[in-house]
């Protein structure tokens, strides 16, 4: 060949305009864009499932906590008893018990109102032996202070009965666990579906770039080099898709929490609030969505590397 040309002897203008360092795998291809769309949709759906599971788990924790903290004292009316005085004694005894946060006694009118959904309005209920209820809200849900409260109460008002709702709370807990397990199972299924869909889309995108793999292979690129180039490229695509899907999901939950604040007092709003709480994800919930996006990004890179490595394994 001719005399070697050093960097200095090259025309500076030629060097300045020289296009170089383009990525080895073209960005913005149809297959690449399709993969970004698939990843964005699947990430959005996975984030919705994950967020839904977190909301239900948190709401169920709240249900259990509320039920286990509340204890009901019931006073059955007996002939000759001054119920108001007994209620006052019971309230006084319960208030002195350790671990009690607050005590609320239902008045006769409030107790009668509790029956209205079943008996209707406009009835004279004064002739019925309606029990009086006192709700005691404990500071914790462990039930450790319950024997102390029971002892105090039995000394002050022997005819009072104490209901700690443990049986019902156990059933609610079982139901809540089942709902959370179902949400978790749905999330796992969603992840499997997502990995499969991303796997297929990645395989298609890699196939579209098969020519590049073969050329690199035959000009002496090592398998590790080719796999690394593809992993980097597809991780970038995965990141773009995960960013779009993840941000959409975050916007969805943010919007839903804002809307739920508006409709919480509407018909059915309280039931939805009971099931999903205030529809507001905790900061850790949003962190969970970010982790889903990060996992999707890593998964896309890993899948592309595996697919390319497998293809290279078949090439001599």
């Amino acid at each position: 060949m001719n005399e070697p040309v050093s960097d200095e002897t090259l025309a500076p203008a030629a060097q300045a305009v020289l296009k170089r360092d383009m990525p080895l795998i073209p960005s913005g291809s149809i297959a690449g864009n399709a993969l970004v769309v698939v990843i964005a949709i699947m990430t959005f759906l996975a984030c919705l499932t994950a967020g839904g599971a977190l909301l239900v788990a948190r709401a169920s924790e709240n249900w259990r906590s509320e039920v286990l903290r509340d204890i009901t004292i019931q006073l059955m009316p007996r002939p000759g008893d001054d119920l108001d005085s007994l209620v006052a004694k019971a309230v006084s005894a319960a208030s002195q018990a350790p671990g009690v946060d607050r005590v609320h006694a239902y008045s006769a009118v409030e107790s009668e109102k509790l029956l209205e959904p079943w008996l209707g309005t406009g009835l004279d209920l004064s002739l019925l032996p309606i029990p009086r209820l006192i709700v005691v809200h404990m500071r914790d849900q462990t039930g450790g202070e319950l024997p102390g409260l029971r002892a105090l109460l039995s000394r002050a008002v022997p005819q009072a009965s104490l209901e700690d709702h443990r049986v019902w709370a156990t059933r609610i807990g079982t139901m809540a666990n089942a709902v959370v397990a179902l949400a978790a199972a749905l999330f796992v299924l969603m992840i499997v579906a997502m990995a499969t869909a991303i796997g297929f889309a990645t395989r298609g995108a890699v196939a579209a770039n098969r020519e590049i793999i073969e050329v690199l292979h035959f000009v002496g690129a090592s398998d590790a080099f080719i796999a690394r180039e593809f992993e980097t490229h597809f991780r970038r695509l995965g990141f773009r898709g995960a960013l779009i899907g993840g941000l959409s999901a975050i916007a969805f939950f943010f919007g839903a929490s804002t809307l739920s604040a508006w409709w919480s007092h509407s018909t059915g709003g309280e039931e939805i609030a009971a099931l999903f709480g205030a529809f507001a994800l905790a900061p850790t919930g949003y962190l969970g969505l970010v982790l889903v996006g990060a996992a999707v990004t890593m998964l896309t890179g890993y899948l592309s590397r595996t697919i390319v490595s497998r293809y290279l394994h078949g090439l001599l």
Partner: peptide, 24 residues
């Protein structure tokens, strides 16, 4: 330029190290 430089890039050589060679 990049097509011709591909084998050198695949070897992991820095672009500044082979630029003159490829242009020549």
């Amino acid at each position: 330029y990049e097509n011709v430089a591909l084998p050198l890039r695949a070897m992991g050589r820095a672009e500044s190290g082979y630029r003159a060679e490829v242009i020549e």
